[in-house]
């Protein structure tokens, strides 16, 4: 296997690990699926829609997100997602874990 492919796979795994935290942190305010994809992209996190939508469903079934279908500004119906109170608690804890992990990794890699 070429190095490029190896690196690509590892980056994919890394990204998959952090995408839940990124989504939870962005959903402090309501977003619909496509706007969330763009928001993630604007932050430098390119996420495939086939990764994002199943993830949103999973987070909702775990009680970390809430969603409802709405028509805003006479546009087509869209499903809006927002973080739930339980999701906020989990996010706060995840942020601490993340800080600890990045600190450890910084030490390890320096």
């Amino acid at each position: 296997m070429e190095n490029d492919e190896l690196i690509q796979n590892m980056v994919f795994e890394l990204r998959r690990g952090i995408i839940s935290i990124a989504v939870l942190s962005l959903l402090g305010k309501e977003e619909y699926g496509y706007s969330l994809l763009k928001a993630l992209s604007d932050q430098g996190l390119e996420v495939d829609q086939s990764t994002l939508y199943p993830l949103l469903r999973r987070l909702e079934s775990q009680g970390l997100l809430q969603s409802d279908w709405r028509i805003v500004d006479e546009a087509r119906p869209r499903r809006y997602y927002v973080i739930s109170p339980q999701g906020r608690e989990v996010l706060a804890q995840l942020k601490k874990e993340w800080a600890s992990m990045t600190e450890s990794m910084q030490k390890l890699l320096s």
């Binding site: 496509y34 939508y53 087509r76 499903r79």
Partner: peptide, 13 residues
């Protein structure tokens, strides 16, 4: 539900 969401996203895109 999933069909509706896929339709909505594709139309947005």
């Amino acid at each position: 539900d999933i069909e509706a969401e896929i339709r909505s996203t594709l139309e947005d895109m």
